[in-house]
Design a binder for these strands. Structure first.
Lengths: 237, 237
DNA sequence: TCACCCGAACTGTGATCACAGATCACTAGC
DNA sequence: GCTAGTGATCTGTGATCACAGTTCGGGTGA
């Protein structure tokens, strides 16, 4: 009774179910490209590997499948979808459109605190990318951190969630490629675009910021497409 | 062997699991506003009502929860999220941004066939809205059909999925309001905006089409917000 | 030697059971 | 009379079992 005021300040702790944990574990595998397009996934094997029963894995997989990050074939086989060039292009265009509006809003509404966070995220990525021996996994994570530091300043929660899902969907193909061909990092395209974006955000220039991020996304996509890693399959036989 | 060519044209039939069926049933309930914000949902009761075990319901609910269409409280109670005014505003702004780019693209890329489909969808909605005794449920469905006829012409599958999820999220609050206050239909705001959108799409004027849809969305939202149906709650006690 | 077929060992899906925690009505105690 | 406590009954979560369909390998047939 007397401690009502103190209790009112308690942060409501989020409940973690096993399903959530499994979901994050699988998401991590997908986002980092350790699960490549076409890879199959067995409920029982995954469950055994994680030391849980199949139930939590089922729920996690069904969520991932609902997002299109995993797919369950008519044969009831679970696997990472193999994306044809056309599907990949559509995904990239969607990312450019959605992330574009997020960046534009972020540029116009960012607080000085958010700007500082973006700057330090950019610096961190730059430091890793320019290192003598860049750690690819770490570079990928820092790149993601930078992007989401920007999107976080757009002030629209639902939009951030949408973008997170798009990244999850694009993660396997992009990061698989990056694993196979790390030279993309070295060319410095991303560094240039990021710098442009940060400058535009500083200047509260939404259009310029959106253009920079769009170029960042598109150049990475073109790099992958021109290498021909994605052949346009109609069906997997 | 010899029929390989013919077989190649077979449409791969989608497998329907019980979970999918349950998911659609629940989605329908939510989209039509029959499940209102704050309503609780019991796995066992839902399962009994649908004549299945709890398993399929669990999976469907976990998918819905992943999309934020349902939420499971720390008490482990499943319910339709009660959206504060701030959250609703963020959702509306997100819809305007995302659906705006979809409409703009649709206006610029629509084929004549898609235009015809959009026109007939608009006519169908108009007919229902201007009827002597409009069927609200039908009007809601036709409004949805029209919007998605437009978005379908944007040529970006992932974008359409995103919008579908946003509609699912906004469905309960919007349609609940429409059930309580059907006069919104009668004021004809939507009719005017739809007409503007169709005209702009005919003219391949992306910006004008986006503006019309944005106004459509915003006016409906303002109508709900000004009525004060959403009080801004920080926590549910 | 190659094609076919049959069976063992998987696959996901659904049902059922077990359990911890939350609710709520009710009663005992102040 | 009203509060605090208590137990039956609900909740979702996780594990286990049962089943049908698929996959894949080994053996048998021509």
């Amino acid at each position: 009774m007397n401690s009502a005021l103190a209790l009112a300040e308690l942060p409501l702790l989020e409940r973690r179910t096993l399903s959530d944990t499994v979901y994050e574990a699988l998401s991590d595998l997908l986002a980092s490209g350790r699960l490549a397009p076409g890879d199959r996934l067995s409920l029982r094997q995954s469950a055994a590997a994680l030391g849980v029963s199949v139930m939590p894995v089922r729920e996690a997989v069904s969520r991932l499948a609902a997002d299109g990050v995993l797919e369950v074939a008519p044969n009831r086989v679970i696997r990472v979808p193999v994306m044809g060039a056309a599907a990949f292009r559509a995904l990239v265009e969607t990312r450019i459109a959605v992330e574009g509006v997020a960046v534009a809003r972020a540029a116009e509404r960012r607080t000085t605190g958010e700007l500082a966070a973006i700057r330090s995220a950019e610096a961190a990525f730059r430091a890793e990318a320019e290192a003598a021996e860049p750690d690819r996994a770490r570079a990928v994570q820092l790149n993601r951190d930078l992007h989401f530091a920007i999107y976080g300043a757009c002030g629209l929660g639902p939009l951030q969630e949408i973008i997170a899902r798009l990244w999850l969907k694009a993660g396997p193909v992009i990061n698989l490629d990056l694993r196979a061909h790390p030279e993309r990092l070295l060319q410095g395209f991303a560094l240039r675009r990021h710098a442009e974006a940060v400058t535009a955000i500083e200047a509260r220039d939404g259009a310029a910021a959106a253009a920079a991020i769009a170029a960042d996304i598109r150049e990475a996509a073109e790099f992958i497409l021109t290498r021909g890693g994605l052949r346009d399959v109609e069906r997997e036989d």
